[in-house]
Design a protein around this nucleic acid. Structure first.
Length: 495
RNA sequence: CGGGGCGUGGUGUAACGGUAGCAUCCAUGCUUUGGGAGCAUGUAGUCCGAGUUCAAAUCUCGGCGCCCCGACCA
């Protein structure tokens, strides 16, 4: 007979401090978020992982409606000639396109080979600016048609050579919003409004503290005048670009002839923006909050905020326990608290570990003892705190526990980022900081791309953004070349 | 596209050139159920092709596939 209480349970998840990359993969696997696919670099998102994406959609859609954007859909395939129209854009994406060249298969020696070559090949969209702005050029005639704001939820494909689940996959899901305005000011306001939507979403729903800023020239979107971004810091100190909003100026409108007649009957080109957030944010969610026990889901994004585990053996026990479970279910429904009752056969301990790995914020244990005492055992995922809560206080306890958990997660995220951001004033200090510490470095840089490239080459750190809060119009000397600098830049190693 | 490694049940692994074994998962039954249950029974495997050999998971050659490192990644 083996003695269970003596048995050391081996953790299925590699420790964060031991191997962060392996830890990340283990958390995903043990939480049942995704599966590998037969296609290199692609990923199967399993139901428990997809539920996170659906939640993200349900939060962002109303935000998009508030700024006047409506959902629409455009084709997966883009004529290659469309890509050619905007020079910077094609240069940015040409190297990583999946190309469709044939339209049927033919059997030859028992194998199916492509046949029926297309006259003009298509690319599978790496992003949809070109095909959407082709449509805009037909839709827009008058200043009365403006502004136009559309958003589409779709998949895109970028033939990345090195991939990691959620963070960088060959195919990924995202939303891309596209707008056209009659004035530069309108488009600029939208660029900043949308990055603020993303900041708010990251901080208030995902509990991830981010830096809102502007990308440097070398890191901006191919074809944009400038790119606004939110940058998050993962628990290993590396940066993750979590959402972007691009001021496209008139670059695409001139290439695709998206023009209108203004009130003076003069032809004008529209001012455009595009903005997007992808399934990569799920990677950020995992890397920002989870621990050595597995996934930690912030309460506002969790599919189930509460998991209820009935504990009972005999039929009589089952009867009283499930009676109580039904009552609690009704109370939770009333308060819109999402839950899952794990009524599968099997031992409670097994279920405790499973839901811990899956990151459910709160666990309710209900057994005969709790029924007798008119109370419930509640265990909080983040700190493992165990409470005995009287039935009468249950709902208010759950509500404040969920709120408290969100707050703790956000504070931890914010303190971690701020605690791992270092200001330096010369290159020696910069290099030693990057080498010896994890996190971001904040310093002055000139506008010269060459300095950024050299720094990346020599230290592995790239520019993350010029923070909107304090980075612009901040005079100093470039730490690399010593020239006058007008901006202060956040740098770090990035995913 | 360069450098390295690996292909054995669904998964993870073992086997000097000589009976393919262990764990887990799955299935069935009984006993269990407040922190990863126990016992019994069962299903299931050497990437493909050629060669060497009495004999190949093992050696050789070829193919295919996968992983890691680099290049690449608004």
């Amino acid at each position: 007979m083996s003695n269970n209480s003596d048995k050391k349970v081996e953790n299925k998840i590699t420790s964060r401090s031991e191997d962060f990359s392996q830890w990340y993969l283990d958390v995903i696997k043990e939480a049942d978020l995704s599966d590998s696919s037969p296609v290199r670099g692609c990923m199967v998102i399993k139901p428990y992982g997809y539920a996170i994406w659906e939640k993200i959609q349900s939060i962002l859609n109303p935000e998009f409606k508030k700024v006047g954007a409506q959902n629409a859909y455009f084709p997966l395939l883009i004529p290659v000639s469309f890509l050619e129209k905007e020079a910077e854009h094609v240069e940015g994406f040409a190297k990583e396109c999946a190309v469709v060249t044939h339209h049927r298969l033919e059997e030859k020696d028992g194998k199916l080979i492509p046949s029926g070559e297309l006259e003009e090949p298509f690319v599978i969209r790496p992003t949809s600016e070109t095909i959407i702005y082709d449509a805009f050029s037909k839709w827009i005639r008058s200043y009365r048609d403006l502004p136009v704001l559309v958003n589409q939820w779709c998949n895109v494909m970028r033939w990345e050579l090195r991939t990691r689940p959620f963070l960088r996959t060959v195919e990924f899901l995202w939303q891309e919003g596209h707008t056209a305005y009659d004035t530069k000011e309108g488009a600029e306001k939208n660029t900043l409004d949308m990055i603020e939507v993303y900041r708010k979403f990251a901080e208030e729903y995902l509990a991830i503290s981010v830096v809102k800023g502007i990308k440097t020239e070398s890191e901006k979107f191919a074809g944009a005048d400038y790119t606004a971004t939110i940058e998050a810091m993962m628990q290993d100190g590396k940066a993750l670009q979590s959402g972007t909003s691009h001021m496209l100026g008139q670059n695409f409108s001139k290439s695709f002839d998206v023009s209108f007649l203004d009130q003076n009957q003069e032809k004008q080109y529209v001012w455009q923006t595009s903005w997007g957030m992808s399934t990569r944010i799920i990677g950020a969610l995992i890397m920002a909050h989870s621990d050595d026990k597995g996934l930690v889901l912030p309460p506002k994004i969790a599919q189930y905020q509460v998991v209820i585990i009935p504990i009972c053996g005999s039929d009589e026990e089952k009867k009283v326990v499930f009676e109580k479970v039904e009552k609690i279910k009704a109370d939770l429904d009333k308060e819109n608290i999402s839950y899952k009752v794990d009524d599968r056969e099997g031992r409670p301990g097994f279920k405790f570990f499973e839901w811990e790995r899956k990151g459910v914020p709160l666990r309710l244990e209900i057994g005969p003892k709790d029924v007798a005492k008119n109370s419930v055992v509640i265990v909080e995922r983040l700190q493992g705190k165990k409470d005995f809560v009287e039935d009468a206080n249950l709902i208010s306890f759950i509500k404040s526990a969920l709120e408290g958990m969100h707050k703790t997660l956000f504070e931890n995220s914010k303190n971690f980022r701020e605690g791992h951001t270092y200001e330096v004033s010369n290159y020696e200090e910069f290099k030693s900081t990057i080498e010896s510490k994890i996190g971001f470095v904040y310093t002055h840089l000139c506008e010269d791309k060459a300095c950024e490239e050299k720094i990346k080459e020599e230290t592995g750190a790239s520019t993350r953004c010029i923070p909107l809060d304090g980075g612009l119009n901040n005079k100093g000397k470039c730490i690399y070349c010593g020239k006058e600098a007008n901006r202060k830049v956040l740098l770090g190693k990035a995913y």
